[in-house]
Design a protein around this nucleic acid. Structure first.
Lengths: 340, 340
DNA sequence: CTGAAAGCGCTTACAG
DNA sequence: CTGAAAGCGCTTACAG
C-alpha cells in the first residue's frame, strides 16, 4: 500500500498525473469534481507523495538543521538546550518543517558532520548555536555552502552572518542596576568564559551599569568562571576576599554555587551579600533559593530563530538579519528587595 | 559552485556520468587512472552529490527519526533525554546517518507529525521513545506505514513490535536485594506512574525480591508517584506512617525528594531509613547525598538503539527484535553500607 | 480546467 | 573497465 505513486492515483481517479499533483499541492485550477474524486482515492489508498522526488524537483526539503558545534560541551547537563529545542520543534510543527539535529560532540565528529550538512538537496537552512570563538571555522565552512544560515547567539568574529540573540548587554545592565537600586555599594561579577560572546556581553553590561553609577570596581571585582555550579562556588571563594555586598552571577547555576559558598562561609543572603543570577530556567534550586534573576525567553527564542531562518530561506537574495530579544528582571528575595 | 551535477564532473574529468557515480560511491570496476582524475575534479570543485536525487533512486535517505510522543512530558526537565540523544547522535555520526527529531509536545501536535513521519522516501526508520499506554495509537499508525520501527522502552500492549529496553525488573530486584542484604526489615517502594511499563516493571522487581525473601510487605508499602522530586517528597510523607527502615525510589529525583522529607521529619539517612534510587544520571544532588542507586547506561542505550534500528532497516524481511540491557548497582552511603 | 511531455540529478542493469 | 540509456516519482511550463 505504500508502493503507490501519483500515477496510480491518477489512474484510479480517472485523471492525469498533473491533476493529482495539483490537488496534493492545494493548487487552484482544478474542477471541484476532479478534486473530490482525487481526494477520495487518496483517502481510500492512504497515498502520500514521495518526499525525495518532491524535494528533487521543487528544490525544497522543508527540513532545517540545528547544529550544536563541539564548543557546546554542556548539551547534556544544561537545561537550556531542551528548552531551545522545545521552541524550535514547536515552530517546526507550526510551519510544517522537520528538524534534523546535528550534535558534534567533539572536533573530530564535527568534521564528519560537515559533508552531511552541506550535502545539497537535504537541508533548506541551518541554525548554528554559537557564540564561541572556536566556532569560527564551522561558520566559514557553512557560509561556503550558500545554505541559508542563522547563528543562534552572537558570533564573535563574523560580520556578514545573520544571527539572533538575546540582548545580553541590556539584560546585565538591568541586573546590576537592580543591585545598585537596592543600595549595594560593592558589586562584583562572576562572568562566564570570556572566550564566548555570552561571557563578554554580560560583562559589558556590568561595566555599563557600574560606569554610569558612582560606584567603584576594579579587576578584583571580576572573576571569570564557567557557568557551572562548582565554578560559581570557586569564584565566590576568590571574591570573598574583597568583601563584596553584592554579586551578579552570569548564570543561575553559578549563582547557586556562589550562594552555597556564602553560606558555607557563615554569611547570609541577602543580608550580607545580595545575589542576582541569569537564566530563570525551571531549576528547582532557583525557586528554593528565591533567586532574583534575569529571565531569558529560551523557548520563544528557539521559535523566533526558526521563523527568522524561514524568512532567510524564502528570500531569494541573501540578506543580513539581526534579531535581539528582550529579557525580564525577575525580582525574588536574594537581593533583599521584595516587590509589592 | 554548488550548482554542479555529476554530469559536470564527468565532463571535466573526461569520463561518463556512470564512472563518476562509481567513484563517488566507492564502487569497484573503475581504473585507478579514471578514479584519480575524478577524485581530483571533485576536490577542486567541491562537488557533493544531490541527496534528494540519490534518495529517490536508491530508496535510502540515511536519515532516521526519533519520536518523542506527547506522553513524554518531561523532555524539558529530565536529564535523561539529552543523554539519550547523545548516544543516538554518536551512533548516527558513526554509521553516517542523520537524525530527525520529532517532539510531539501535545496530542494535537502529535497528529500533525504523523504525515511527515510516514511520508515515503524521507526516513529509513524510526525510534519511538515509549512505554506509556497513551502511545498505543501512534505505535499502530507507525506500524501501518511499514517503516522499520524500534520502540525505546517496553511497549505496554504491542506484541509484534521491536523494542529495546533496560532490564528494569532485574535492576529493581538487585536494588531491593541490596536493602535486604543491608539488614533492612521493612522495605517500602515509591513507584513511577503505573500507567507506564517503567513504573510497572520496577514495581515487579520489588515484588520479586520481596517475595523471594522472608520479609513482609503490603499495599501500604507501595506508593505510586510521578518521578519528580516533589512527588518523592509527598510519597515519603505518606510512607512515613508505616515507619519503614528502607525505601526503594524508582528514580533518583524521587529519592532526592524522599530524603528531603526524611530529613525534614528529623530522621537520618541511612541510620533510620536507607534509600536506594534509580538512574545515576549526573545530577549534582545524587553525588552530594551519596545516593546508592541503579546506574542505567543511557548513552549506550541510545547508541545500541540506533544499531538495532539499522539492523532492522538492512533486513529486508521484517523481523521481531528485542534487546534488554543490563544495569549496575552503584553502592554509595545512603544504605549505610560502604564497599571496600 | 486538463493532460502530454520535459526535466530535476542521481543509480544501475546492460552491452560492449 | 566504460558509457548510453532507462528509470526513480514527482512538478511545472506549455498547449489546448
Amino acid at each position: 500500500m505504500s508502493e503507490l505513486r501519483l500515477e496510480d492515483i491518477a489512474k484510479r481517479a480517472g485523471v492525469s498525473r498533473s491533476t493529482v499533483s495539483r490537488v496534493v499541492n492545494n493548487q487552484p485550477n482544478v474542477s471541484e469534481k476532479a478534486r473530490q474524486r482525487v481526494l477520495d482515492v487518496i483517502k481510500i489508498t492512504g497515498f502520500s507523495p514521495n518526499a525525495a522526488a518532491r524535494t528533487l524537483v521543487s528544490r525544497r526539503s522543508n527540513t532545517i538543521g540545528l547544529v550544536l558545534p563541539h564548543s557546546v560541551s554542556t548539551f547534556f547537563t544544561d537545561p537550556y538546550y531542551p528548552h531551545l529545542i522545545k521552541g524550535i520543534t514547536q515552530a517546526c510543527n507550526q510551519y510544517d518543517f522537520t528538524l534534523a539535529l546535528f550534535v558534534a560532540g567533539s572536533k573530530e565528529y564535527q568534521e564528519k558532520l560537515l559533508p552531511r550538512l552541506s550535502s545539497k538537496g537535504f537541508l533548506d537552512g541551518v541554525i548554528l548555536q554559537s557564540g564561541h570563538q572556536a566556532d569560527q571555522s564551522i561558520i566559514l565552512e557553512l557560509k561556503k555552502t550558500n545554505l541559508p544560515m542563522l547563528v543562534a547567539g552572537r558570533p564573535l568574529y563574523n560580520d556578514e552572518v545573520c544571527f539572533i540573540d538575546i540582548d545580553n548587554i541590556a539584560a546585565s545592565e538591568k541586573a546590576v542596576r537592580h543591585l545598585i537600586n537596592c543600595g549595594r555599594k560593592k558589586i562584583a561579577i562572576i562572568t562566564g568564559p570570556l572566550t564566548s560572546t555570552v561571557g563578554l556581553d554580560r560583562l559589558a553590561g556590568y561595566r555599563n551599569a557600574m560606569d554610569s553609577s558612582s560606584l567603584k570596581y576594579n579587576d578584583n571585582s571580576i572573576i571569570e568562571s564557567d557557568f557551572t555550579e562548582q565554578g560559581g562556588y570557586n569564584a565566590m571563594q576568590k571574591l570573598i576576599t574583597i568583601k563584596p555586598d553584592a554579586v551578579f552571577a552570569a548564570s543561575d547555576m553559578m549563582a547557586i554555587g556562589a550562594i552555597r559558598f556564602i553560606r558555607d562561609a557563615g554569611l547570609d543572603v541577602p543580608k550580607d551579600i545580595a545575589v542576582v543570577g541569569f537564566d530563570d530556567l525551571p531549576i528547582p534550586m532557583v525557586n528554593e533559593l528565591q533567586l532574583t534573576t534575569i529571565r531569558q525567553p529560551v523557548v520563544q527564542f528557539g521559535f523566533k530563530a526558526v521563523e527568522t531562518l524561514i524568512e532567510l530561506i524564502e528570500n531569494d537574495l541573501p540578506i543580513i538579519k539581526r534579531v535581539l530579544m528582550d529579557t525580564e528582571l525577575i525580582i525574588r528575595k536574594s537581593c533583599g528587595f521584595e516587590p509589592g
